[in-house]
Design a protein around this nucleic acid. Structure first.
Length: 881
RNA sequence: GCGCGCGUAGCUCAGUGGGAGAGCAUCCGCCUUACAAGCGGAGGGUCGCAGGUUCGAAACCUGCCGCGCGCACCA
């Protein structure tokens, strides 16, 4: 296939896991073996997720790492479950960002894009993309993303571009795309229009200046934060019900500095409570003013160019908007027209989300999508359950957006992107051409390109060959889920919904949605729950952490924090803990291998197995069932924690310790246990594989000898719970053993007995506690010695009324420590008793609480009373001082 | 301004009507031959505040305080 290096099979494992030694070779092997490939003609049911396309200029940040971990986990499990699982990779062309990158590069060579011309510039961008773009793709490999690389797509590919042109034409013909002169968000630095959601608002320090317009009785005072726009004022507006100004409505006043005369109009939009209740109206530079202007037939006077430099004739001509502002205020002050000034005046200011430049509302001719009918469909698809939102609380946000959409400005004054398929005729005609059609002579194509999200919105099906009816679409569409951040809900999820529903509106219902479920995750935050930001200096580099701790550690940490729809904090301590967990697994497997664990042959029936074997198999099967349930709700944190708990606490801390004596004993019992041990570990590795693919593959191959057979845990079946191995009796028994061992360990620790010291003891009452046959196990785990002929009891420990442990501590009993321990236990028991008695003395409780609850409290009361009696006796039996 | 969410151990978070939990951090003791990236043990919380519903509230309701987020407006 390829010449990917062959990872070396391991005869034995070193005592520490070294991720760096296995990860990259393992990934290349997976790719070489075609493990990630999805076959269109497969008989298996399809399960497809398209990658939320990353930006071609981007690098893998921890947010990607988080999202990809979750998607990869889902995809790997589905693959193991027997689905033809496709994770579709690719990138979007990021119009503004990419053009910026290439323009900056050119600028450093002293060249502008205009020097090159459109065609040559676009050629340069493609060249840049080939040489430097898409670094994120290699970084995804570090993470272990099991995407089908043979299907990589880019929004500017010919096929995807055809999808863009096709849907544009359809929308245009359906009159859902139109061109209009409107106030749009203009970035004077990027020199393009941007959509509402590409504007970030922040509360900034500004100024509020009150200016007197007109003179004498007709004077009226307006307040503004943008004095420079007054050059373009074409009216002053007041509220129609405002008595103060009623007599002025319909009159004209002189606009200072310009000599122009402007009318005073009455408009409902004006808030009479704010400021003086009078507003200057600049229709060409403010969206609200534009609306007022429309209602009153006012002219729009543009006073700035596309770089936000003043174009109005006069002394301010050529000044930047921020230079013009103080200059104009100064000029007005000179005329005595400034009646009040407030600085700083904090108000919301929009910034370009790409370059942070202050947005300039600008009157210009742009292309828009008429979203109302599309958004209605997008809302309805969720409302009527065709598309599910997970977690469901997020629906509200979705509806709030989709039900209140403004039309979407889709034209961008850029060169990099999909050029709008409209040709303009010499007399203002416009025609939208279908594929293969030639424009009439003399027509020129619209110079603008489309918003990048216009093409991203098609991603769920353009990647599969739409508008052709391809086998891929037949097999994999609609996508099973779209998994992405809640912050992206509006950026492309809603748009994918709108376009997906529109493009497939005539398809059969099962095909008419882009995905069955929208799964939303939170944002990655730092270890204190703070938002990560470069200025705050709390960002982390996922690559660096993978270098240090391995990809699995990063993945597991992120998965452990992934509560649905909730932000996930991450810190280095936690990645370290995950690294430790991987190492724990490593060593558990190492122990298994040393102990001769096997995965070959039938698993013995439960009846023939020891208590620990039956217990761990029961726990394993409960764990499988729990994990499956958590997956159904995308509860990654809970399923990860469940698996960690099972692996570390049940398997490593208890099971392995419980079977050591059995293995040492040898014989048939040991043989059965070796088989169970192999089964438990092998299943655990399969369960963990979607979360931590690298270490599990390494260990699974070592454990199953699968490396010699060309196998992979990736294609091993996902575990199914086996009810025959659920065993309440064994679980109760081990719980009792754990209780006894725990109490003995506490006694030892309180007494300062060294872990290495075998304390001579005599155990009684194990039979009545139901663990009569388990004395040897208890002795091993609690490190107890057999009582000799000279056994002399120096201390006694009563556990839960049944079991008594008599210790011969050879006179070294620490009476004070023991008294303190017993006193503490008695206090706890007394508190418990008091609580129980209070409830049982309450007639309301006895009368209304369910029987089983009352019975439970009675049991607890009895247990507490017995404990107090026992402890009191033990205290009395202690020697003095 | 409208809406949503959150407030539980030092930190980060689970826990949605019946004995306050986890991981990390802290303290004590251990190299007990899978693992010191480990093992055993321990300490630590009036569950934001105040009312209410209930036999019973961390959980349900109301109000308040604090924090975060989204949307709109901000002349």
């Amino acid at each position: 296939m390829t010449n990917a290096p062959e990872p070396q099979p391991r005869a034995s494992l070193p005592s520490q896991y070294a991720p760096a030694e296995v990860e990259s070779a393992r990934y290349e092997r997976w790719v070489a073996d075609g493990r990630f490939r999805a076959e269109t003609d497969s008989d298996k049911p399809a399960y497809c997720i398209v990658i939320p396309p990353p930006n071609v200029t981007g690098n893998l940040h921890v947010g990607h790492a988080f999202e990809h971990t979750l998607i990869d986990t889902v995809i790997r499990r589905k693959r193991m479950q027997g689905f033809e699982a496709l994770w579709q990779p690719g990138m979007d062309h990021a119009g503004i960002a990419t053009q910026n990158v290439v323009e900056r590069k050119l600028a450093s060579e002293g060249v502008s894009r205009h020097d090159l011309g459109r065609e040559a510039f676009v050629e340069k961008v493609w060249q840049w993309k080939e040489e430097s773009g898409g670094q994120i793709l290699d970084q995804m490999k570090r993470l272990g993303d099991s995407v089908d690389w043979d299907r990589e797509r880019f929004t500017m590919d010919e096929g995807l571009s055809r999808a863009v042109r096709t849907i544009f034409k359809r929308l245009y013909d359906d009159e859902l795309i139109y061109r209009a002169e409107r106030i749009i968000n203009w970035c004077p630095r990027c020199q393009t229009a941007i959509s509402d959601i590409e504007v970030d608002h922040s509360d900034d320090d500004g100024e509020l200046v009150s200016i007197r317009y007109g003179d004498g009785e007709n004077a009226i005072v307006v307040a503004t934060t943008r004095a420079e726009t007054m050059l373009g004022d074409t009216a002053v507006a007041v509220h129609p019900g405002d008595e103060r100004y009623r007599h002025l409505v319909g009159t004209e006043i002189e606009l200072p500095l310009t000599g122009r005369r402007i009318p005073i109009v009455a408009d409902e939009h004006v808030d009479p409570e704010f400021g003086t209740g009078a507003v200057k109206v600049t229709p060409a530079h403010d969206p609200n003013d534009f609306e007022i202007g429309r209602r009153h037939g006012l002219p729009s006077i543009t006073v700035m160019d596309e770089r936000a430099v003043i174009t109005a004739h006069g002394p301010f001509l050529g000044l930047d908007r921020f230079e013009a502002r103080p200059a104009i205020v100064a000029a007005l002050r000179e005329q005595g027209r400034i009646v009040a000034e407030k600085r700083p005046y904090v108000h919301a200011v929009g910034h370009c989300s790409r370059c942070k430049t202050t947005i300039e509302p600008r009157l210009s001719k742009q292309w828009f999508v008429k979203v109302a009918p599309l958004a209605k469909e997008a809302g309805d698809a969720v409302r009527d359950g065709r598309v599910k939102v997970s977690p469901p609380e997020m629906e509200k946000r979705y509806f709030a957006w989709v039900d209140n959409l403004h039309d979407w400005c889709i034209s961008r004054q850029l060169w990099w992107g999909h050029r709008i398929p409209i040709w303009h005729g010499p007399n203002g005609e416009q025609v939208c051409l279908a594929e293969g059609e030639e424009p009439p002579a003399g027509y020129v194509q619209d110079p603008d390109v489309l918003d990048t999200w216009f093409s991203s919105a098609l991603w769920p099906f353009s990647t599969m060959g739409w508008p052709d009816e391809t086998p891929d679409l037949a097999k994999f569409y609609p996508n099973a889920i779209l998994l992405t951040g809640y912050d992206i809900l509006f950026f492309w999820v809603a748009r994918m919904m709108m376009f997906g529903l529109y493009a497939f509106k005539d398809a059969e219902p099962a095909k008419a949605i882009p995905f069955g479920e929208i799964v939303l995750h939170g944002m990655v935050r730092d270890q204190f729950g703070k938002k990560m930001s470069k200025s705050f200096g709390n960002t982390i580099d996922p690559i660096e952490w993978m270098d240090r701790y391995g990809a699995d550690s990063l993945r597991f940490t992120l998965a452990l924090g992934a509560n649905p729809g909730v932000d996930v904090p991450i810190g280095e301590d936690w990645v370290q803990a995950s690294r430790n967990f991987c190492n724990k697994l490593w060593n558990a497997t190492r122990f298994a291998l040393i102990s001769g664990a096997t995965t070959e042959g039938e698993l013995p029936a439960a009846e023939g197995l020891s208590t620990p074997d039956r217990w761990i198999l029961s726990r394993l099967n409960h764990t499988i069932a729990a994990v499956d349930e958590f997956y159904a709700d995308y509860e990654f944190a809970k399923l990860s924690d469940t698996l960690r708990h099972f692996a570390w606490d049940d398997v490593c801390d208890w099971y392995l310790e419980l079977i050591k004596p059995v293995l040492a004993e040898g014989g048939v019992a040991a043989e059965r246990t070796r088989r169970v041990l192999g089964e438990v570990l092998e299943t655990l590795l399969r369960l963990l594989h979607p979360l931590i693919p690298f270490v599990t593959e390494e260990l699974w191959l070592a454990l199953t000898r699968g490396d010699q057979l060309g196998e992979s845990v990736m294609t091993a079946p996902w575990p199914a719970p086996r009810e025959a191995y659920l065993d309440d009796v064994a679980e109760a028994r081990v719980t009792a053993i754990q209780r006894v061992v725990g109490e003995i360990r506490r006694f030892r620790s309180d007494q300062g007995v060294k872990p290495s010291q075998r304390v001579s003891t005599r155990l009684t009452g194990l039979d009545s506690a139901g663990i009569g046959g388990d004395e040897a196990l208890i002795r091993a785990l609690a490190r107890l010695g057999e009582p000799g002929d000279d056994f002399a009891e120096t201390a006694s420990l009563a556990i839960d009324g049944d079991v008594t442990v008599a210790f011969d501590t050879r006179g070294t009993i620490d009476v004070a420590a023991e008294r303190a321990r017993l006193a503490k236990d008695r206090t706890a028991a007394e508190k418990e008793l008091e609580q129980c008695r209070r409830k049982l003395g309450n007639e309301g409780f006895l009368g209304k609480a369910p029987e089983n609850v009352v019975a439970g409290i009675r049991e607890r009361e009895a247990a507490a009373a017995a404990a107090i009696e026992r402890i009191t006796a033990a205290l009395a039996a202690l020697p003095e001082g």
